[in-house]
Structures are given as structure tokens and as C-alpha cells.
Design a protein around this nucleic acid. Structure first.
Length: 513
DNA sequence: CTAGGGTTAG
């Protein structure tokens, strides 16, 4: 009974059942205590844990290894490493599990130094012990010490290799991940997910997709739900709709249709690839919805300008009793910005406190965007002065952009001043400002900024879009001349433009409206 | 019958 509850995460039930067991005067054995103590640890129920501890002593299980080890786990899991260490010291016999539990205890309270001191005293070391110590170094970002230890191990298993791979992945060291991945003797699904994950998290989306294809063709391991969620998010960032749709079918075929992470990633992929209807279909088909599901569909609808749908779904979410978080409100505020709902946006912003969400800089940024895009530049500026944190470059860029639209030279100059202070190296700010001067016919000022831009000795990297051609994501930017059939494309576009402008063109007759 | 190690989505 205890095991059944425990395996399903029902720790409260374990403890109350143990209470009943005591009431019935049934004697607990050495097999009972580890499970009870584990549940106390999971719940951080120190009070109950201490009672069970004294029962352990009373019933004479002080020297049992299983009992002692779970006591260490329980105390360190509840933030009481001191108590854990006391138990550890009083043990008459310690095996490698006991040492590992104690090391883990020190690591989880941030004391990696003490963990290492204990680690160095262990004579009989196994892979789990090594892995625990290495994970400790990774957690504090000390990859150098982690690698040093890793090199000392003579008999490494796949999981140890994966721990190192994930450590480098978390610190964004793509090259180290690639190197490790190529030399590791065996690879399982975690290894592949690790490499794909570092690509997906650090902007190498094409590499993430390529590695996934490589996994399909050369690996003996099947992708799992984590693989699918990761690759789908790379597709979303690439705008790789074809690959995304292929993954949708593949996920259904290998049985991950009901997995909430995969479904949420699918929804986001469709939204970011411009297929909001497909995203809505996925959302409607969900049997289970979590916070991420709601946030994804709200954000997707907002991005597509379907503001009233986004706000309607936000209402549904509240009616379903789901607590929104900060991400929800980014979507909601973005929806308001898209259709210029200034007063409503402010009301939503103020309602955040009803859910005890304290606004972060991105929420103030949304409000500044809402005000400035709707032409309330002074209100936006006022907000920037009043907000509790310093405005960042995103906020000032947004003001700069709006001051171009609404031709407000004072705000433009103020924004540029701050942007030069925050990001003197960023040529985009000089470029936008020089365009503002050009619009206003202030040629001298424009020329000054062009010189200033040259002085940064950086040229602006043009913003680009991506489309999928023959199974590969290709980038293109404004006035891009690189296409081999550039001339034919221009001829075709010119004739299409003429057709559209001619009085003979009636979109309704062509089924376009 | 009981104890120590993993990746994912907004």
C-alpha cells in the first residue's frame, strides 16, 4: 500500500496510512521506515519526520543502512543539512549510498566545498557517486572542476557522459558538446536530446533539425517526447512549417499525441509558422491543458492580431480556474497593443496584482509599447520615469520607433541619448535615428549620425526572414540580391504589381476576398 | 517488501 501511494506521488496518503498503522498497533519493520521517511522528505514535513526518527531509535533500527540513508535524504531535502550530517556521523556502518546521500545533501544546500571534502574521503567509489559530485560542480557552473573529475574516472557509463554533455549544454558551450558527443562510446536518447537541446537553446536551429535527421537515420534509439518538443521549438524559431507538420504526423505515429509538452510545442510551432488555425485546432483537441497550453495559444493569437480571441481565451482560462502567470500577461498586453486597446491594457496590467504577480520589466515594456504605438508618447515617457526599474534598450528602442511614426523629434533625441548610453556599439540605433532626421529633412544631423555609426566600426546586421526551400530553412533580407534567378523574379513581380494596380483587377472575382 | 543518478514545451 505504501509503495503504491509512493510511486504515484501520494505522499500525504503514505503518512496518514502510517498513522493508522500505528493506531492498529502493527509493528513497522526495517522495510517500512525507508518509505515513510522518503514521503516525509518529499513533503518537507520535518515535524512528522522527526517523530518517525524517534520511533526509529525506539524500535532499534538505528544501525540499519536503508533507514539511515533515507534519514539523511529526508533532512537534507528539508533544508536541514546539519541534522543530516549528525545522522551521518552517528552511523556505525556507511556504504557508498550513505556517502552519496550526504554529498548530495551538501550540494543541495549550495555547499559544494564540504561536498568535495566528504567525496575525497570515500574509498569505494561507484558511478552514481562520481555523477553526484560532478553534477554538484555543474550546478555552480564550475565546468573546469567537473571536467577534471570526469577525466579521473576509469570506468565511465553513458549517464556520466550525458551529465557532462548536459553540463556544457547548460553553459552554452556548443563546441564542447559536439566534441564530447562525437567521442562518447555509446549514445542513448538522452545523449541525442542533449546535443539537439544545446543547438535549439543557443540559436543553431538548423543544426538542431539536422541532428534530429541524423538521429533518425543512424541511431538505434527512437526519439521520445523530449526530442519532439525540442525539435518542434527549433522548427518554430525557423519558421520550418514543412518539418513541423512532418513532426506532427510522426508524433502521432509513434504515440506521443497525448503528451502535453509535445502538444504545446506543436501549438507554438503552428503559431510561429503563421498557421494560427492549426494552432487553434491543436488547442481545441487537448484533453489536458496546463498553464503553458493557455499561455501559448494566447500569445499565438495575440501575435497574429486576433486580439479579441486572445482575450476571450484569457477569460475562459480564468473561468477554468487556472492561475495566470507573468507570461500570460505578456500575451494579454500584446493583444491589447495590436488593436490599440489602451485603457483595457492598463486595466489588465493593474489586475496583475489580483493574482499576486509583480510586474517585471517586460510588462512595463508592453505598456510602454501600448502607449507609444497608439501615439501617447508622453504617457509612455511618463511611465518610463515612474516605473520601479531602469528602462532597458528594448523599451527605449520602442520609444524611438514610435517617435519616428508620430514624428516627435524631442522624444526621438531623448531615446537616442539613452540608447547610446546603454548600447553604444549597436549601429541599429544610429540608423533609426538618422532615418528620423532624414524624414524631417534635417540632413546635417543625419550626416552626423552616419559618421557616428561608422565610428562604431560595426555594420548593422540586417534583419532577415526565413522560408523553407527543399527541406532546408533559407534566410533572405530586404533588397536581397543573392538569388540566382533574381532577374526573372523581378520581372514576374513587376508584372504582378502592374496587374494589381490596373482597374481590371477585382480581387472579389478572383476569390481573394 | 526498503536507500543514492537524467534531458523537454510558453
Amino acid at each position: 500500500m505504501f509503495k503504491g501511494y509512493s510511486q504515484n506521488g501520494m505522499h500525504k496518503e503514505v503518512i496518514s496510512l502510517f498513522g493508522k498503522m500505528m493506531e492498529c498497533y502493527v509493528k513497522p519493520s526495517c522495510y517500512t521506515f525507508p518509505m515513510i521517511l522518503k514521503s516525509c522528505g518529499k513533503l518537507s514535513a520535518l515535524c512528522e519526520g522527526e517523530q518517525v526518527h524517534s520511533l526509529v531509535l525506539k524500535k532499534g533500527f538505528r544501525t540499519n543502512l536503508f533507514v539511515g540513508n533515507t534519514l539523511i535524504e529526508m533532512y537534507s531535502g528539508s533544508g536541514e543539512v546539519g541534522h543530516a550530517y549528525k545522522v551521518f556521523c552517528e552511523m556505525t556502518l556507511r556504504n557508498v549510498v550513505a556517502w552519496t546521500c550526504m554529498i548530495n545533501g551538501f550540494i543541495s544546500c549550495g555547499d559544494v566545498k564540504s561536498a568535495r571534502e566528504i567525496f575525497d574521503l570515500v574509498v569505494e567509489r561507484d558511478v552514481v557517486l562520481w555523477n553526484t559530485m560532478i553534477s554538484g560542480y555543474i550546478e555552480i557552473g564550475d565546468m573546469e572542476s567537473a571536467h577534471k573529475l570526469f577525466d579521473e574516472i576509469t570506468c565511465k557509463d553513458t549517464m556520466l557522459w550525458n551529465t557532462m554533455l548536459n553540463g556544457y549544454a547548460n553553459s552554452g558551450n556548443i563546441e564542447a558538446c559536439e566534441e564530447l558527443f562525437e567521442v562518447m562510446p555509446k549514445r542513448n536518447v538522452f545523449s541525442w536530446n542533449g546535443l539537439i537541446g544545446v543547438y535549439a537553446n543557443y540559436g543553431c536551429f538548423n543544426e538542431a533539425l539536422t541532428t534530429f535527421k541524423r538521429m533518425l537515420s543512424e541511431a538505434k534509439v527512437l526519439p521520445n517526447h523530449v526530442t519532439l518538443a525540442t525539435v518542434l521549438s527549433a522548427c518554430a524559431r525557423l519558421g520550418a512549417l514543412d518539418s513541423g507538420m512532418w513532426l506532427h504526423i510522426y508524433a502521432q505515429r509513434i504515440g506521443y499525441k497525448g503528451n502535453i509538452s509535445v502538444e504545446n510545442a506543436l501549438m507554438d510551432m503552428y503559431g510561429k509558422c503563421g498557421k494560427i488555425e492549426n494552432a487553434k485546432d491543436v488547442f481545441k483537441g487537448l484533453v489536458k491543458r496546463d498553464l503553458v497550453s493557455w499561455n501559448t495559444i494566447i500569445g499565438g493569437l495575440a501575435m497574429h492580431g486576433h486580439a479579441s480571441d486572445a482575450l476571450a481565451i484569457f477569460d475562459q482560462m480564468k473561468n477554468a480556474g487556472i492561475q495566470p502567470d507573468g507570461v500570460t500577461f505578456v500575451g494579454v498586453l500584446c493583444a491589447c497593443t495590436h488593436i490599440g486597446l489602451v485603457d483595457e491594457g492598463l486595466a489588465y496590467f493593474q489586475s496583475m496584482s489580483d493574482y499576486s504577480i509583480s510586474p517585471h520589466i517586460e510588462h512595463y515594456g508592453c505598456l510602454v509599447d501600448l502607449y507609444s504605438r497608439s501615439g501617447h508618447l508622453l504617457a509612455a515617457l511618463h511611465l518610463v520615469k515612474m516605473m520601479p526599474m531602469k528602462a532597458d534598450s528594448v523599451i527605449w528602442s520602442c520609444l524611438l520607433g514610435a517617435s519616428r511614426t508620430y514624428k516627435n523629434m524631442e522624444v526621438a533625441e531623448l531615446a537616442l541619448e539613452h540608447l547610446i548610453e546603454l548600447e553604444p556599439w549597436n549601429p541599429a540605433h544610429y540608423l533609426t535615428s538618422s532615418n528620423i532626421y532624414r524624414d524631417a529633412g534635417k540632413w546635417e544631423n543625419m550626416a552626423k549620425l552616419k559618421v557616428a555609426m561608422k565610428d562604431t566600426s560595426f555594420s548593422k546586421i540586417p534583419g532577415y526572414s526565413m522560408i523553407e526551400i527543399h527541406d532546408e530553412a533559407v534566410e533572405f533580407y530586404s533588397s536581397d540580391q543573392r538569388h540566382p534567378k533574381m532577374l526573372e523574379i523581378c520581372v514576374c513581380l513587376t508584372s504582378l504589381s502592374k496587374l494589381i494596380q490596373s482597374p481590371r483587377f477585382r480581387p472579389e472575382e478572383m476569390g481573394l476576398q
